[in-house]
Write a protein that binds this DNA or RNA. Structure first.
Lengths: 196, 196, 196, 196
DNA sequence: CATGAATGAGAGTTCATTCAT
DNA sequence: GATGAATGAACTCTCATTCAT
């Protein structure tokens, strides 16, 4: 597969991502994908052996993108609060960008396949989020910005709220105000002591 | 439809609930349902016009059950902390009882159908949870058990964590320890002042 | 599956047999079968899970039919030469009845699937033919009708000629005269001594 | 087409022959051929207009090879029994060399296409075999080596056994011992008188 | 009321063949 | 000459829904 093919593969992945974002995992058919990509039925199979493989590669791409964004953020000089704010801002964007949120598709996928839960990508993504958050919190505690007794538990708590918000955004709807309110509430929990 | 028929309809709903719980919404076929119910394919259509309607009635039943449980709880004499603890205990049970948790199916359903978000049952359930929590918190604040500035925001926060935990339980796995830790953490946020 | 269904299954098997007879194994599609049976695409799958299974059941039916014919023949009083003549007459019919000869389909099938050769039905059929022939020859030798030193080898020889004729009938064509000539030649080989 | 192209065409034919030998006719895909030849998909079409034409040219090549072998054999001084033994030895090799036996593919091919049977190559090959055998038998009768009343019928008989053995070798399996036994049995039929 | 055989649209997938490069 | 990405018709198989019994 030459360079040109690689571009097309990337194009298909990005287009498929939109489709999965809009329709979830189980409801997406090959026709949806080939129509969106404006390629032939057979053409898709030149790049991906099955719908399952296609979805997994979309997830991998997603992960790589997130990793890049995180690396960028961490390479800049900033206070812990700033970085945490940046992280939450990114999450907020993802929550609200209804048409750009793969969470439902990901849940469906990892639910329908009987993958060992320990190895799945969604779990890795969650754990990475927890790790980042707890490290930020620890740093914040170290320099006096935050107060927190168990940074991992708090990291998990924030991630669970974010997951809850993402799912809610795609199913029952959630306003920007609610997202702001929730994220702010969680930061306040950390800096609480100082505010008193 | 006579009394006997009503019983059969109820039986189908309860059996279907188990199936949706196990397999989600999109993956469930009529065969799954009729096999589980041990009725004929055609028989199912005497009671429900389509799979979609069947699922919606399962959700309605679910809602009714929850309402009953809540009514029971509220009719007894108890401190606010007790009631809140009971509520969270119920939620914990639902989170961990992997095979008894309709959340994934519900997400899939409300995601695949283009229902107006305001009217959907999942939203109503969420809002009811928020209402209950905020009322409990308000009551707790009134009698000095809790400290809280915005009970609705906190109620939402707890509900988002619970939603996040439910989804996580079905997709990436979550330990009982983590559930306990998270629920405890949220209660501590409320009673925080007193602990200092 | 009730009695009526059993009849339909039988009807599909017989119709499929004709199709396989006409077109071989690999070239036959489900569409060919459902068109010939005048049933729906899905209807076929109520009775058979795949083309492979369908063909195997056709073969089983074929075998059962042959067994019946053989049993009939052996239950009647007759000289060995008569029975042998009957057997060869049956074979001749099968060879020449171009549109009623599954051999090519059977060859294709057992060639394309990597079944252990020892267990395949075609082999069993061949071995049964050899056994029948050698028993007839032995009986003929015992009562002085035939002369033969190695009845199994001769039985195999006759079966190989029959197989060769069957294949030839479906591919390069073979006249009735040639079939008669060949079968006669083989019987003469057995009774040779007496003719001298 | 230059000399170089001619070589490539020859190479493709020989490689394709191996593939058809292994997999039959209908099961072979263009991918199988181009992979085996290590050429491009389009490249194949520079030399052959379709898979059908490719197979027919493989058969033609096969025929030419056989002709050469026969010419070689007949150009040498030898007794008729020697030549017959050589012919049968060649046939035995072809029967047992499972992976070098085009018979199944040939049967499939001439069966699936609706060629007039009189003109097909497989028939020509069979008829050539019969002609060669009957000529050898006639010569053997002339010089007293053999006894035979109808050399053409016997020639056909030997060819039918050989065809039967070839098919059996690829489908139900046949041991070298059986092949030897069968070929010997047929020669003994010819020299029978002398043995008495 | 209840059955389950039957339907047919549509899903995923394969592959001979073409054609711009 | 040679490539291999692209096509699209045709394949196998599934399943919600219907309807004669």
């Amino acid at each position: 597969m030459g360079e040109k093919s690689e571009q097309k593969k990337q194009f298909i992945l990005e287009t498929a991502r939109k489709v999965f974002t809009e329709k979830g995992y189980k409801s997406v058919t090959m026709k949806d994908i080939v129509d969106a990509c404006e390629i032939s039925r057979g053409g898709l199979y030149l790049y991906f052996d099955s719908t399952e493989q296609l979805f997994m590669e979309v997830l991998k791409m997603e992960q790589a993108d997130t990793d890049d964004t995180l690396e960028d953020a961490l390479s800049k000089e900033a206070t812990v609060t700033d970085i945490l704010a940046l992280f939450l801002k990114e999450q907020k964007k993802e929550i609200l960008r209804g048409t750009n949120n793969l969470s439902i598709a990901t849940y469906e996928f990892f639910f329908s396949k009987k993958f060992p839960k320990k190895e799945n990508i969604a779990r890795k993504k969650f754990e990475l989020g927890v790790k980042l958050l707890s490290e930020m919190i620890d740093a914040g505690v170290a320099n006096g910005e935050f107060f927190c007794e168990d940074s991992v538990a708090v990291g998990k708590n924030i991630m669970f709220v974010i997951e809850g918000l993402k799912v809610a955004a795609r199913t029952i709807g959630v306003s920007e105000k609610t997202v702001d309110e929730q994220l702010l509430y969680m930061i306040q929990g950390l800096v609480y002591e100082e505010e008193e």
